[in-house]
Amino acid sequence: MPKEAAEPHPIRPARPRLAPRTAYLLQRVLAPNAFYRRLAAAVERFPVLRRLFTATEKRAKEPLFGCRMCGQCALPVTGYACPMSCPKELRNGPCGGVGADGSCEVHPEMRCVWVVAYERAASQGRPGDLRRLHRPVDHRRWGESAWLNYWQGREDTLWTTEDVLSPALRAGEPSAAGADEPAPGEGEPGEVQTGELQWNS
């Protein structure tokens, strides 16, 4: 291991983490609806109110999730383990350097965020959440309120709505390896037969 025992990572979620059940319950409570949409629009009309609201969100989410205020929250589909607390800020799953014990390669005293995410999502019967493709972070949004964005539908395209491993998205039915010519219309390896994975949606 490199010399020093890793400088502490700046923001970490409080221990113990919010129970996954509670987190998903919160998801239902905070789900966008007409009331929240109007509330968010109203808050955004007044800069002071907006700053206050954003600060409150930060106060709540920083200790709960180690939130960095990226302004585009992935928590609903990552078992409420924040991918931005990964030292590589990976939004689509763990890197290949996770220790055999599930530790982070960069901060070995911390568990890999994605190991935590996988366990938490799976424990609530939602492992499919992790099979969506996340689009890149928009770095203009740092510091914004993700809740205001979420309630006003600005986060609808952060990730694909489909589980990209669902059979419907597979390029043709599996046949014996390397046996036949692919059926007409069947793609080459890597091709996805759907409009779902458009870069801009």
Binding site: V98, W114, V115, L130, R131, V164, L165, G190, V192, L197
Partner: peptide, 28 residues
């Protein structure tokens, strides 16, 4: 287009699925 995967790293249940995400994204 190529990708890499570590079949041995945790979470064990997600490693093949992660490759699946790479394939869906474009890995050949």
């Amino acid at each position: 287009l190529g990708a890499v995967e570590n079949p041995f790293a945790p979470p064990a249940g997600f490693r093949a699925e992660r490759l699946g995400k790479k394939v869906a994204a474009g890995a050949q």
